[in-house]
Design a protein around this nucleic acid. Structure first.
Lengths: 192, 192
DNA sequence: ATATTTTTGGAACAATCATTCCAAAAATAT
DNA sequence: ATATTTTTGGAATGATTGTTCCAAAAATAT
């Protein structure tokens, strides 16, 4: 039988995700990856087939983690409004190193002719909005806020807000400023 | 006396802005610039001192144009609410080629250690929010919407919304979806 | 211990990166 | 027309890009 790998593939993928997250695709060289991941050049090409493939795997990895974190942030709260608030609060705390959000960064860097990434990012948007919509819907059923609101439109607004906040978190120091914006929108749910 | 340039510096700068806007800094090579601008390599280095300098000048150029466009979009309208609506409508129409917004793209691509760009982008944010705030303030004085609202917070929210919308415009087909989000926020101004 | 299989280190690859340099061309002032 | 000054074309720079290749090392199965 053959020799076993000396590194844990999932750990390396996590590091690759971190580096691509911080620097983006084009500003990250294979040399950067080799140094940061701590594995050999040949191992990188053997395990993942190249820079682009590694990037796509890092992106998938991010999406899975982010989705789980999102559900956790929402459903750990006693009601819908607190859940939404916590979702944003959580995602802003996370940004200790000002990386923003992987997928938001990627969307902003998207070039118009990149149909593949475009499709992945659209899929990501659908996921996000569906999670929010379903969550709001269950909150509405539970009577946590007045009925009759356009939850589809609010989910869309929250996704837009999330993108904006993640972008601004890269230059804005205080998360409290951004939470202000969240609170303003949350009033839309509460009022009636 | 000496020979005169065969190209208009401002036109070349406009093209450079367009290319950096579409592709971002790292994905744009000097060769790309030489081809797209239609000027010689040496001319590029003689006129602008290098890639980074040209980028910064393109960024300044964008900020000036964008600011003028913004003021025009706002103050061409009969009242504050129509002005804000038009601002977003205008910026979404513009995106025929899905470039998003230069400064938003740049903010999302910002690396945490780039203090210079960070300062420029913060300055840009201050500009934006001040323009919006002053505009809303004058609308309030004119009695175009109920007094007593936190216009500072609303200006901040609108900036966040602008960033989010510009990001999403790169993957979302219909501007109408994004205008929906704008309308939801505009209700905040209209409602008592 | 030997055979087998895979990882690993590092050299080597051609292509591209941003930048510099120089001689030739061009355009105005005298 | 000649002198002067700047642009221009294109070659050349050395560094870095992503990727491949190969021999040596390592680890398990027999």
């Amino acid at each position: 039988m053959a020799r076993t790998k000396t590194f844990e593939q999932s750990e390396v993928l996590m590091k690759a995700m971190d580096l691509f997250w911080r620097k983006g695709y084009h500003a990250t060289s294979v040399q950067d990856l080799v140094s940061y991941l701590g594995i050999n050049r040949a191992s990188l090409y053997h395990t993942f087939s190249g820079k682009e493939d590694l990037f796509l795997k890092a992106l998938e990895n991010y999406r899975e983690i982010n989705k789980a974190d999102m559900l956790e942030a929402l459903y750990s709260q006693p009601n819908a409004i607190a859940g939404i608030r916590n979702l944003f609060h959580y995602s802003l705390k996370e940004r200790k190193d000002r990386k923003g959000c992987f997928t938001v960064n990627l969307t902003a860097a998207l070039m118009a002719d990149d149909k593949h990434l475009q499709e992945i990012l659209r899929d990501n948007q659908r996921d996000f909005e569906k999670i929010i919509f379903d969550y709001l819907k269950s909150g509405e059923v539970m009577g946590e806020f007045p009925k009759g609101k356009d939850l589809r439109a609010i989910a869309n607004l929250l996704y837009t807000l999330y993108n904006g906040i993640q972008v601004i978190s890269k230059i804005e120091a205080a998360p409290s400023r951004q939470m202000e914006a969240v609170e303003v929108v949350l009033q839309l749910l509460e009022d009636k």
